[in-house]
């Protein structure tokens, strides 16, 4: 890891929160109790919040983004998340500065106008952080475990399948659905359709069938019998059995990040498939070596 550049990136990720804290401290005695916090277009403000509450929310978001930046900076292959943390930190400070200066400039009728540029600049701060961090440190990840191909005789045919169950995911989706139903029932009727999201996620990911065979790798929603991820054998360039660190793949669940996708149900062993288009796909499995060895053998046979 390039330590000076990584440290610089961390400092830059925290800078927006520092700006928010410093400006809030120096403006607090001049800000009214309630300040304009929402505009529609270029007209007058149409939303107001408590100044201290809004300032605290922006500061806390900046600090959380800063912490996320530290976590991302310490790991290999996390430049995207470091940049995202920088963009979140920068844009929240931008929101704070543009709303607060609009109120300070004309407390009677605050207008946003050109101050929106503070917010745009804050978003762009993510790119500054990513550039400062430089390329993702290479060689930090342990070398992938190469899977020896299965000793498949020319007259042999083989297929592998398993079923993944995700009780934790099912439980959290059930909780999410209940929350949506309760919120909708107590008066927020427009959010009723949102209940579809956790129900669909539970249907698709509650039970997943993973198959590796002459068709390639395939993930099927077990409850619907619907293939939702298929990688044809012809598009597989290599397979590895490795340890899946959820944060490196974007978290738990079905994750899509630049250049790769993954179904991560837990931390631990998993299968990583390299695709001919340069993308990688990972899925957590108790025994990734067997499907890995089979796919290697089938690849060698088709080559």
């Amino acid at each position: 890891m390039n330590r000076p550049r990584t440290l610089a990136a961390i400092v830059l990720t925290w800078l927006p929160a520092a700006v928010t804290a410093a400006t809030w401290a120096s403006w607090s005695d001049r800000l009214p109790g309630r300040m304009a916090t929402h505009w529609s277009g270029t007209g007058p403000a149409d939303g107001f919040s408590s100044s201290s509450g809004f300032g605290a929310a922006m500061l806390i978001t900046g600090v959380v983004a800063g912490v996320a930046g530290i976590v991302a900076a310490g790991r290999a292959g996390q430049r995207f998340w470091l940049g995202l943390a920088g963009a979140v930190a920068g844009s929240t400070a931008g929101i704070w500065v543009c709303t607060a200066t609009a109120t300070l400039d004309n407390p009677a009728d605050p207008r946003l106008g050109w101050r929106l540029l503070y917010f745009v600049a804050g978003l762009a701060w993510g790119a500054v952080v990513a550039l400062a961090a430089g390329p993702s440190p290479a060689g930090v990840q342990p070398p992938p475990e190469t899977v020896a191909p299965l000793d498949l005789a020319p007259t042999e045919r083989a297929a592998w399948s398993t079923t993944l169950r995700a009780p934790a995911l099912l439980a959290s989706m059930a909780v999410a659905a209940i929350v949506v139903v309760v919120v909708a029932a107590v008066g927020q009727a427009p959010i009723w359709p949102v209940v579809v999201v956790p129900l669909a996620a539970a249907l698709v990911f509650g039970r997943v069938r993973v198959t590796a065979d002459r068709r390639g790798l395939r993930l099927t929603a077990g409850l619907l019998n619907l293939p939702f991820k298929t990688i044809p054998l012809a598009e597989i360039t290599g397979v590895e059995a490795t340890e899946i660190e959820p944060l490196e793949w974007g978290g738990w669940g079905y994750r899509v990040t630049p250049g790769r996708a993954a179904l991560v149900l837990r931390r631990g062993p998993g299968l990583v498939v390299h695709q001919s288009n340069g993308r990688r796909f990972a899925v957590t499995l108790d025994d990734p070596r067997t499907p890995g060895a089979l796919l290697s053998a089938l690849l060698a046979r088709s080559a």
Binding site: L150, L152, A153, T155, E156, R157, A158, A159, W160, S161, T162, T290, L294
Partner: peptide
């Protein structure tokens, strides 16, 4: 679960 069959086997 790995299934493997040999079409040449008796």
């Amino acid at each position: 679960m790995l299934f493997r069959v040999d079409v040449a086997a008796a």
